[in-house]
Amino acid sequence: MESERPDQKKTKQLGEGEKTASGLMGRVREETAALKERAIEEAKTYKDPQDTQLWKSIFRVSHDRADPRNRSLAILSNVFLHLHPAKINRDATRYGFTWGMGGITFYLFVVLTFTGVLLMFYYHPQKVLAFRDILYLEHDVPFGKLLRNMHRWAAHLMVITTWLHMFRVVLTGSYKRPREFNWCVGVVLLVLTLLLSFTGYLLPDDQLGFWAVTVGTNMARATPMFGSEGPLGPQLGMTPFNDVRFGLLGGSIVDSNALLRSYIWHCIGIPLVASIFMAVHFWRIRKDGGISGPAPVMLESELKAVKKK
C-alpha cells in the first residue's frame, strides 16, 4: 500500500529519470529516503517507552511484567520504595488492620514540608512584618490562602493521625517484643509533632498565637529547679531573666526574639530532629520484622512459664 502513495511514485520516477542527469541531487534524495525509512523503523521501537535507554536508566527494571523476580526488583531497586519489604503478610494489606495511619502521618509530614517551604518564601520572622506577610499571603499571593490553609489543616490532621496510629498499635499489641524500642521512638515522634505544631502557632503573630504561646511558656516558669517560679527555682538563683522560659523565648516576654526562635525551631530544628527519628522509626519497623500482623492468635493454654536465666 505504501509504495502506491503518489508522492513516493513520483520520487521513484524522478529518481530514475534524473539518475544520470544530476548525480549529487540524486544521491541526496536517495540518502533522504533511506534516512526517512530508518527514522520510521526507529520510531517504531520507541512505541514502548519502557524499552528505551532513558527509561531503563531511570527505573532500572521494567514494572510491567508479573513474574515474582520483577515485582521484587520493582521494590528493591527503587530508593523511595525500598523501605518496603518485597513481600508482606497477605492479610496486612487489609485497610482494617493498620488503618494506614502511620503512612498517612508520614505523607502529611511530606505535604507540610512542601507547603511549608513555599510559605517560607513569603514570610519574615520579624515583628510588624510577620503579620503583614500573612495578610499579603491571604490577599495577594496567588493561591496563598490555599497554601496557608493547607499547611494549617494538614498540621491538625497530623496530630490526629499520630494519635490514631498509636491507638491502633496499642489495640493490636504491636508495641510488644521485639518492637518495644520502636514504640519509644514513636512516643518521641509524637512529642516532636506536638512541638512542631505549637512552634508554628506563634508565627502568624496574631492574638491567637501570641496568647497561646504566652500561656504555654508561662508554664515553663514553673519548672522545678529551672524556672523562676518553680519549686526550688528561686533558691537556685533563677530569675525571669535567666530561667528556662527566658531560654525558650530569648527574652522575658513573647517578642521579636521569641518569633525568631519559634521560626527556627519550627522550620529547621525540630524537622531535622524529627527526620532523624523518623528514619530510625522506619528502619526499625523493617528490622523488627515488618508489620506485626495480623498474626495467628495465641491460645491461653499455650502460655509458657517465664525462662529463668
Binding site: 496557608r148 490553609n149 489543616w153 506536638l194 496574631d206 492574638q207 491567637l208 501570641f210 504555654g216 516576654i253
Partner: peptide
Amino acid sequence: NAPLEEPSNPNLTMNPSKAPWYF
C-alpha cells in the same frame, strides 16, 4: 479558612486565652 485574629497585642489579653486544642 485558617483563623487569623488581630495583630498580637500584649496589652489586650484574650479572654478566654486558650492553647491550641491538643494542649
